[in-house]
């Protein structure tokens, strides 16, 4: 993604010191005026990628909507850790209804705002990959098809973490979860054809679809701000590592998100009306092992007798992403 064409200095990311930028170009998180929409004191785990992603995304949405924002939240970690009654971390109007209906609830809120002439109010729905790709999939597709004025944000940590790390349809192949244990001749999750929601969202030809990671704050904020000002259905799929579910160190969350993108397993791009309009290039290609090794959910593939064939199959998937989405800078291999 090249919304910021000037490269200030090379750190391997798009990170740039706020001090070098004009006030207006600084990140929402860098401003003292940020909303702190998901306030401190919530019960998320240390290093939670979802909490980070939600704070970045919702603060950016609040900034872009001039704080005229209503959120509908699916059941899941984000809901449970943010609102243990009688407390709440949400500094905004927020509703949780069910696991599988956040997109429809948001459609209802948007309809109410429309009939009441509150056109300044923007609506966001959010949930994890379980509620998005599995149980809430029907409602999400319906919301897309009607082109309801809702931004749906999926925080993808590749499994049902709130219920104790079970497999979702967003869980990658070979991964260990509580329902895909590393046992038998094909340990871990199956090598299926996957269920890639960003592409499914694009197939609905909605005005805006994007992916992002918590490793690239500016890109994430930019996409949310852009999406919030579009009328119609929008979808942003944010990659959020889960230290608890992945068996990774809390301090590795951002690094893992960064490596997932750099190895090609998680393509970062944006699309309008079903057509890709921008891709974040890989800057320093890395092998998938570098990304997998710090995560215990892949531990059964390494050790004394590494599962070379399995690792090669995962690498092949990354390579396929790299060619499908054109993730490499020209001349870089």
């Amino acid at each position: 993604m090249s919304y910021q064409p000037v490269k200030f200095y090379q750190t391997g990311t798009f990170t740039v010191g706020n001090r070098l930028l004009d006030e207006s170009d600084r990140s929402v998180q860098a401003t003292t005026a940020r909303n702190n929409s998901l306030n401190s004191g919530h019960r998320a785990c240390q290093g939670c990628g979802e909490a980070l992603g939600a704070r970045y995304a919702i603060d950016a949405a609040m900034a872009a909507s001039n704080r005229q924002l209503i959120a509908a939240n699916a059941t899941g970690c984000l809901e449970v850790f943010s609102t243990p009654y009688p407390e709440t971390s949400w500094q905004m109007p927020w509703i949780h209804s069910l696991f599988g209906n956040a997109p429809a609830v948001a459609s209802g809120v948007a309809a109410a705002m429309r009939i009441k002439g509150r056109t300044e109010v923007r609506v966001v729905a959010q949930g994890g990959d379980g509620s998005t790709t599995d149980i809430g999939f029907g409602c999400l597709s319906g919301m897309f098809e009607r082109n309801d004025d809702v931004l749906y944000i999926c925080y993808d940590n590749e499994g049902y973490m709130n219920t104790g790390v079970q497999r979702s349809s967003a869980t990658p192949p070979a991964v260990r979860t509580a329902t895909t244990m590393p046992l038998g001749p094909e340990p871990g999750n199956v090598f299926g054809q996957g269920k890639y929601l960003p592409a499914i969202a694009m197939a609905h030809r909605i005005p805006f679809v994007a992916t992002a990671t918590v490793a690239d704050l500016r890109d994430l904020e930019h996409k949310v701000k852009h999406a919030i000002n579009i009328r119609g259905a929008k979808y942003i799929h944010i990659f959020v590592p889960c230290p608890l579910g992945w068996g990774s160190a809390s301090h590795d969350t951002i690094n893992l998100a960064y490596m997932a993108k750099e190895c090609g397993l998680f393509p970062v791009f944006q699309a309008e009306y079903g057509k890709i309009t921008g891709v974040s290039k890989i800057r320093k290609p890395i092998p998938v092992e570098d990304y997998m090794k710090p995560q215990r959910r892949y531990a059964h593939l390494f050790g004394k007798n590494p599962a070379l064939e399995t690792i090669a199959k995962i690498q092949a998937r990354a390579d396929e992403n790299i060619s499908t989405y054109g993730l490499l800078e020209e001349g870089v291999n």
Partner: peptide, 16 residues
């Protein structure tokens, strides 16, 4: 797209 969505939309609009 379903009755589940019908009631869910109703929940959102009524809450708003």
């Amino acid at each position: 797209e379903s009755e589940f969505a019908a009631m869910s939309v109703a929940i959102g609009s009524s809450a708003a």
